[in-house]
């Protein structure tokens, strides 16, 4: 980021994404922000190997992947007895925006959920969130992960305005959530 912003050069990040295009975009954005230590994996199984053998500070994770999907990856990192990094902040990047999916991700132990399409600003605000507001972890018999009782974020990231034509198309579909609504679900127990 430079002299006036966060120094990301000392943070190591793992991108877990099976789409070559998306992996390239996320890596470009992170490099543009100043990250130098960027690990990549194209599926959850490879990512598990990387996270257990390298000091990863943040994980950016897709949901739909072969071999081991994003949810299974999170559950393994959080709960496996031999997990080397159970507290690592995990930011899920996914095109899923349905309520049931957001709740599933939160209950698996995801810290932040970003619904695609991705922008530089959205990615950055999630980085700020895990840096500035590290959430305590909660352990019960049925859950281990970031505290789901965190309050709604103070910031409001806005909603995208679309043309009438796109609204017509969107209206054909069932309920999907915007980013600000997703932030609310991620925060509530």
């Amino acid at each position: 980021m430079g002299d006036q912003g966060y120094d990301f050069t000392k943070l190591s990040v793992l991108i877990v994404e099976d789409s070559v295009y998306m992996r390239k975009i996320v890596k470009m954005l992170l490099s543009g922000l100043g990250f130098r230590l960027v690990y990549e994996a194209e599926d959850g199984a490879s990512a598990l190997n990387l996270i257990n053998t390298n000091p990863i500070d943040i994980v950016f994770l897709d949901w739909e992947m072969p071999i081991l999907n994003g949810i299974e990856f999170v559950q393994t990192v959080r709960n496996a007895p031999d997990s080397m990094n159970p507290f690592v902040p995990i930011v899920m990047l996914s095109a899923h925006s349905e309520v049931k999916r957001i709740v599933q991700a939160r209950d698996a132990g995801v810290n932040e959920f970003v619904v695609k399409p991705l922008s530089a600003q959205t990615l950055y605000t999630r980085l700020v969130s895990v840096i500035e507001r590290p959430r305590p972890f909660v352990r019960t018999k049925s859950f281990f992960g970031p505290d789901r009782r965190r309050k709604m974020p103070e910031s409001f990231f806005g909603t995208e305005r679309r043309s009438d034509m796109l609204e017509q198309l969107k209206a054909l579909g069932s309920m999907a959530m915007g980013q600000d609504e997703i932030d609310g679900v991620m925060a509530k127990g």
Binding site: M1, Q4, G5, Y6, K10, Q121, Y124, T125, I131, S155
Partner: peptide
Amino acid sequence: KTGDGPAKL
């Protein structure tokens, strides 16, 4: 590790 930074890019 990161120090301070702005809330928004």
